[in-house]
Design a protein around this nucleic acid. Sequence first.
DNA 1: AGAAAGACTATGATATGTCATTGAAGTTGC
DNA 2: GCAACTTCAATGACATATCATAGTCTTTCT
Lengths: 143, 143
Amino acid sequence: MLSNIIFYSLDRAIRSYRRMAQANIDRAGVNITIDQWLVLRVLLEHDDLTQNEIAESVFKDQASVARILALLTQRGLLSAVPLPHDGRRTQLRVTEEGHRILDAVQPIVNDNRKTALAGISEDELAQLRGLLERITQNCHSPV
Amino acid sequence: MLSNIIFYSLDRAIRSYRRMAQANIDRAGVNITIDQWLVLRVLLEHDDLTQNEIAESVFKDQASVARILALLTQRGLLSAVPLPHDGRRTQLRVTEEGHRILDAVQPIVNDNRKTALAGISEDELAQLRGLLERITQNCHSPV
DNA sequence: AGAAAGACTATGATATGTCATTGAAGTTGC
DNA sequence: GCAACTTCAATGACATATCATAGTCTTTCT
């Protein structure tokens, strides 16, 4: 049975969460994806990261980040100001509209987390986190 | 910090695993994706499922399954024989080549699992599974 | 300075995820 | 036996994941 396979359970958990999270954002009438939200949120605190740094911090590919940034900019949630000291890069600033969306989404995200983790204690959460970290570590070690 | 967010840890764990798993399959010279492998494996045991049934069993969308089936058929790993009693459907049989690939991939998948779960006890695994199931359940309940 | 090496962004190609819809085929109710 | 409903597969549209590479800009080395 697939349900015995831990990675199937993992996949199911994260996908269930993503579906619920996105559905709740959509229902609130906010037009953003959770991945875009995640990137935008990182940029709120660090506006001078390279795409690779952003990618590392949200555990995505540089190519994915590039496309997400393009969409965020195109939708006016982000502004890209050329950096004087490096012609390849830009400073990525969250716009007014971007702030509005971040503000609108934050409570939804909090609710989502509460819903998803209902009935799970702090101890269990810590254990879960620890196990996930170990799996991540194991998968990174070069064979 | 993002590392405090459980869903970020979840996402990271599953993506790390997927990257490692796919890299190991590629390194072995087998030309298949893990998602295609998963679907093919299900069809090995049940060749008369509808796309929706397959989708449910591998926790994917019907649209995703349709495309994966098209690719598997196109690559000759799967044959689609029309079902006499229902003109909309076909019987999906794993071909010789499909069997060869399944046989080649199985030991790699076993190794991957072993690598990913190194140092994690049966008890911990059971707990992990339980927590993931609870999260999945929580996310499914209608708000 | 000039060349080689490295960093950075953008983009092509392919696969998948998700929602929505279409069109075909089966089922039910009358 | 026909109309309404349901099931099923295919596909369009868009977003993301991944790998690879191109093109630009910077740094380093000599």
